[in-house]
Design a protein around this nucleic acid. Sequence first.
DNA 1: ATTGTGGCCTGCCCGC
DNA 2: TGCGGGCAGGCCACAA
Length: 261
Amino acid sequence: MPELPEVEAYRVLAVAALHRPVAGVDAPDAWFLKGGIDAGVVVAALIGRSFTVARRRGKLLLLDSSDDGPVLGLRFGMTGRLVVDGRAGVDRLLYSSDQSLSSWDRFAVQFAGGGDLRVHDSRRLGGVFLDPDEGRLGVDVLTITPAALRSALARSTAPLKARLMDQARMAGVGNLLADETLWRAGLDPHRPAGGLTPAELRRLHKHLRGSVADLIERGGSHSGDLMPARAAGGVCPRDGAALSRTTVGGRTTWWCPKHQR
DNA sequence: ATTGTGGCCTGCCCGC
DNA sequence: TGCGGGCAGGCCACAA
């Protein structure tokens, strides 16, 4: 599903949509428009403008628009794909159908001279925003510093994994990336987030940044080393121990009870 | 403020 | 072959 690695690929793809005047907006699904906006508002805001910069904060894609226009915010939920001029941002999306039905196009911007940018989302868990409140998201984990990570975890009694996925504390970690990071770092996902030693914090920082970078390079959040074993009967790829399956932060969690402590 | 829980969205897959 | 139930998880509303 779209976690930071997928949305980063979408951001790169969205560069192809910059500096092209918007000629039309297609917003057939009112549910998909968030923050009290409707199709008319989006049309009025975007027609005639161009997108100037493609940014990303965590799992939120942000497109600045010209002439002091609004920021278009795109959220992809679990099954959302970005498609620009018919090209998709990622090849495959876990938990999402490989079909592509036009009825799953929830939002589109058409450009003068042809071509378009579309959000395709079978499950409608994503959404479109104008001027989203970027301050509600914590620092992006692709570039998070050791100090910022320490501060985001400090004094928390919440499970470590839940805190990593708290988008207000740090932005971009989803369920698969959380499991991969903690597996690489050798940390039990149930540990109180504020209880890590300085050495463990350093290890977590190294593997958080490393996992994010690796999964971007490999092309998606499903491409982790733990991923193939993340199923019934799975064994730890590192030490062969039977993996445990529990629920942490309301999410299915796979972890190795032997080396994650 | 912090943490935990349930519900929403919908397609897929398993077992009967 | 059809059908029902369980499952996936990002996010939000709400409760304690």
